[in-house]
Design a protein around this nucleic acid. Structure first.
Lengths: 358, 358
DNA sequence: GTGAAAGCGCTAACAT
DNA sequence: ATGTTAGCGCTTTCAC
């Protein structure tokens, strides 16, 4: 590739002038034109590596996520991308596979490539950010906290778990299980806490943890644990899945056992973008993943531009999309309120964020 | 961050020696130890930007895809990642949204960041690779060709379209529509060609294109076009969806109309990882996306390492997973062969690649 | 085996 | 407004 020196020579100016043209500094119209023409002829495109080395900062931001195959995270990625792109940044996606080593490798790369900042959905609560903080790179946490005092955007997880569970209770289910992710992941724990609270309130005599299962946040995890629950002497009549993947796994297993919802009630925290269920047989607590990405990207850009106000945490509100069908007749009383609170399947709700200072 | 100069001073050696230690060149055991210790103390990590500028090559490869929200491409990404990682390369994912401008921006970045190579699922057949070829960066095409004489890995698209259609014919369906992607995308066109061939052979009197629809390769596209088909005076009794997203959209609409498969037959080219359908009511032609990623990454690494044999194209074989249920009784004769060729829902077939020289 | 020194392509003082 | 120049941190000849 051509360099600014070659362009400068062809245009009859100094390298500095070429650089100025490409960085929007003050250059006379005449010379600017000559430079652009020369650059075009030589198919010149500035060497970002050299620029980054010199400037000590690149125009790329890293989005570090635990599972690229989870539509929740790809939706998040779209939000980040859209904001970043229009601000002139490119986004590189790093998939950690929930592996702390991979995650720390990517964070190290972010440092040593002088990336402008990082948006991180931490692999666990043990993620170490010492180095990247020391390097002065802004980091925004998404989906999960980190234990560091940094900006973050999270879902209202406890509320989401509660809403999902309450909906099942109101539909008349009475043995409601909960399938969630690894206990050391904040979202998994908090959504389960929401479930716990509703169960304790409605069924004070129930052994709270008999029907609670920690697993992975993946389809397989949902499958395994659902099988386990069905094999119980007294299986549940409904289940809360703490994320989309678990929900898919659980529904698959139920379907295979001939227990398609609503024969067994299902409520899922998270959207199911690629399911093909008949309209709304499962309750969904929609998580505004795209919006989370947009918000996080905006916060990161602010930090990149030097904003140094105290760290903020933004909690995004979720939206309940109740199932249209209620529990089968064999189940107990069902509130008529539940049946009436339906929502068209095609509704595209807008998530309103509620802001909190950390 | 610390530099090699600081490490060198602390270890009592020259910067060159520090560099050698970190690049596995011959250095005495004694000095190597001192360097490592100094590096540890200073939390030194080599500056990749400087290295890349000097070496004119970085250890990252770009994976450029049209839709990061499509599970087919994320599965592909996993394959690429696994191979790349174990070879010491990191992968950055670039989402073009099927937009030629975004795509060309990313290709430009790949050049100017001196990336080691690119794996590209082209946004269309108009993708311009002149610059990146001129820069001497290896490019491997995946999923779709590019019009350039470069390495590639593709699915057997025509065969896949045929297999999907044939399965519906054998199940007794007789008015079989085809929903496919944009005509200028190779995979969309070829899968439709497979459908065309089977229809022409079995129903020579049918107007071949009455039931053919080009759309986008997205859920919405599948929905819109499925609605259109159902509104026909004589709607189809079955449909071939040319990719996973179209399949999801089509099935959603059918379900909403109370026409859940197999009342209307559905065959999909591509896997449906997140569906929750009862076991195998739709026929799936499984596409080995992960395998495609693995293969492409291996080819790219060979090129990066200087291999300069003629360009190769590898065609991956697909695998038919027939629906377990056949057409409803209202449909015409159904071959008993179809009913017997079932496959357990849990089977995880291994895709065998077949190699071809371009 | 080891060190000295040049230079990758760019940007940002500084000087004019 | 424009040119000159030093230097970002590393790798790699070239001497020794």
């Amino acid at each position: 590739m051509a360099t600014i020196y070659e362009v400068a020579k062809l245009a009859g100016v100094s390298p500095a002038t070429v650089s100025r043209v490409f960085n929007g500094m003050g250059v006379s119209e005449e010379k600017a034109l000559a430079v652009r023409e020369a650059a075009r002829q030589l198919r010149f495109s500035p060497n970002r590596t050299a620029r980054t080395l010199r400037r000590q900062e690149s125009e790329v931001i890293a989005l570090v996520i635990p599972d690229i195959e989870n539509p929740y995270f790809t939706e998040l990625a779209r939000g980040v991308e859209d904001v970043a792109q229009s601000a002139g940044y490119s986004v590189v996606l790093c998939n950690t596979d929930s592996d702390l080593d991979k995650e720390s490798t990517y964070l190290q790369i972010a440092i040593s490539e002088h990336m402008a900042g990082v948006i991180l959905a931490a692999a666990s609560d043990h993620t170490n950010l010492d180095d990247i903080m020391a390097a002065g790179r802004p980091v925004v946490a998404v989906d999960r906290g980190t234990g560091y005092d940094i900006d973050g955007v999270v879902m209202a997880n406890r509320t989401a778990g509660q809403a999902a569970t309450e909906n099942l209770v109101q539909s008349g289910y009475r043995r409601i299980a909960c399938i969630t992710g690894p206990e050391h992941i904040e979202t998994a724990y908090e959504r389960a806490q929401g479930w716990r609270a509703v169960i304790a309130r409605n069924f004070p005599d129930a052994d709270p943890d008999e029907l609670l299962r920690f697993s992975t946040f993946r389809v397989d995890g949902g499958r395994d644990v659902m099988e386990e629950l069905l094999a119980l002497p007294e299986p549940p009549d409904a289940v809360v899945a703490a994320n989309n993947m678990l929900g898919v796994g659980a529904i698959q297993v139920l379907t295979e056992h001939g227990l398609t919802p609503p024969r067994v009630g299902v409520a899922v925290v998270g959207s199911l973008p690629f399911t093909t269920l008949s309209p709304s047989v499962v309750t969904v607590v929609r998580l505004p993943a795209r919006h989370m990405g947009v918000t996080a990207a905006r916060m990161l850009l602010e930090r990149i531009n030097g904003d140094d106000q105290p760290a903020r945490t933004i909690v995004l509100r979720n939206e309940l999309q109740p199932a249209r069908t209620a529990a089968p007749a064999s189940s107990a009383t069902r509130s008529s309120a539940a049946a009436s609170s339906t929502v068209p399947a095609t509704a595209t709700p807008v998530a309103a964020p509620e802001t909190t200072r950390a």
